[in-house]
Simulated assay, not measured.
Amino acid sequence: MLRSMYSGIAGMRGFQTQLDVVGNNIANVNTTGYKKARTTFQDMMSQTTSGASEPTNVRGGINAIQVGLGSQMGSIDNIHTQGNRQTTNRVLDLALEGDGMFIFASNVDAPEDSATLNTAIDITDVNLEYSRAGNMYLDQNGYIVNANGQYLVGDNPAGGNAGIIRIPENAASFSIQGNGTVNYIDGEGQTQVAGQILLAKFSNPGGLEKIGGNMYRSSVNDGMVSNDVEGYPDLIVPESDGTAAIVSGALEMSNVDLAQEFTDMITAQRGFQANTRIITTSDEILQELVNLKR
Rank of each mutant, 00 (worst) to 15 (best):
N170K: 09
E288P: 13
T49V: 12
N148G: 13
T267D: 14
V58D: 00
G51P: 02
A200G: 11
N78G: 10
I266P: 09
F104S: 00
Y232V: 15
S53C: 00
V256N: 06
S106K: 10
Y137N: 14
E129S: 15
S226G: 05
T17L: 08
F272S: 09
D93C: 13
L286F: 02
A162K: 01
S282V: 12
V21H: 04
A171F: 03
S226D: 05
F202K: 06
S53K: 05
N204V: 02
I176Y: 01
G160Y: 04
S114A: 13
S7F: 04
I185K: 12
D99Q: 13
V21P: 09
G159L: 06
P157W: 08
D241E: 11
I167R: 02
Q16N: 14
R270W: 07
K293R: 15
Q82W: 02
N161P: 07
T191A: 00
Q287H: 11
G134L: 08
T81W: 02
I76A: 04
R3N: 12
V58K: 10
P111R: 06
S7D: 00
V91W: 03
T243S: 15
I279G: 03
N89E: 06
Q72P: 05
T49H: 05
A147S: 13
M73V: 15
A37H: 11
N156M: 05
I185H: 02
I266N: 11
I121S: 04
D77C: 04
E54S: 14
T243G: 10
L128Q: 06
S71Y: 08
Q47V: 01
A95I: 09
V29M: 15
Y184G: 07
G74L: 00
V22L: 01
L251V: 08
G231N: 05
G14Q: 00
A244V: 02
R3H: 03
N63M: 07
N179T: 01
N28V: 08
M12R: 07
T32A: 07
Q260L: 13
G70M: 06
G83Y: 00
T181K: 07
S240V: 08
T280I: 06
E97G: 13
Q287A: 14
L208K: 07
T181N: 03
T181A: 12
D234S: 15
A274M: 11
V91T: 15
G134M: 08
S248P: 08
G134K: 08
Y216H: 14
R13D: 11
N221H: 04
V29N: 05
T39Y: 01
Y184E: 09
V193A: 04
Q42G: 14
A133C: 10
G33S: 08
V247A: 09
T191E: 08
G207S: 10
S203N: 13
M136V: 08
Q260D: 14
D122V: 06
L235T: 10
G207Y: 00
E230R: 01
L2I: 15
N170A: 15
N221M: 11
D186S: 07
A115G: 15
L292A: 02
R166C: 07
A133N: 13
S175L: 01
G249V: 07
G154S: 06
N84S: 14
G212K: 05
S175V: 03
